[in-house]
Each structure stands twice: as C-alpha cells, then as structure tokens.
C-alpha cells in the first residue's frame, strides 16, 4: 500500500485515494474535428510505461482534490507531487527503467 503525500492533507495511505490513470492527457478542445482513430487514442489508449510515469490521483476519502504524481512504476517510489495543470517535473526517464 503506497504512502501518498496529499498536497492538502499530508501523507496518507493509498486506500484513501483513487488513481485516475495517466496524467497530461487533455480533453480535445474540438472533439468533432478529430478522426475516429484520434478520438480512440484519447479515450482508450494509454502508454503503461515501465519506469517513470505521471499519474492523476484523487484524495477520494479525504479532501477530494485531484493532483498529479510522478512515480517510478518499478520501485513505486513517488518522485514528485504537483498540481493539476502544471507541467510534469523535469525528471530524466532514463534513470527510471
């Protein structure tokens, strides 16, 4: 069970959180202009990387706020927590493979 540092509530057990999957996938501004393939890419397809991943997390049983986390999917180490809408932190993905 991960220990996740909610930016509002501090370190709490993973069971209080809900993972929202890959971060930095923005909803297209004009969905109608997308091809079926492009839309499917947005709705269904995720990278599932071994190594450095950026994820959305929600403190569902706490403050109910969404935030982003950078995590090593091999060691599970959480490398950074940062707000929604911020760019991902500058981490070298080659270090986390």
């Amino acid at each position: 069970m991960l220990l996740i540092a909610c930016p509002h509530c501090g370190p709490r057990a993973e069971s209080e959180f809900h993972c929202g999957g890959e971060a930095h996938i923005e909803r297209p501004k004009d969905p109608a202009s997308l091809s079926d393939a492009e839309w499917a890419e947005f709705v269904f397809l995720r990278d599932n990387i071994k190594g450095l991943v950026f994820e959305r997390w929600n403190h569902a049983h706490g403050c109910r706020r969404w935030f982003n986390a950078a995590r090593d999917s091999v060691t599970y180490e959480i490398l950074a927590i940062y707000p929604m809408g911020s760019p991902p932190p500058a981490l070298d993905p080659r270090r986390y493979v």
Partner: peptide, 13 residues
Amino acid sequence: LGHLEDYLQTEWP
C-alpha cells in the same frame, strides 16, 4: 459526484 468533480477540477478548472 466523482465524475463531475473530475471534470471540474482537471478539465475545466
């Protein structure tokens, strides 16, 4: 509620 909050906080802040 979770669905609405997700869109409100992450897509349309």
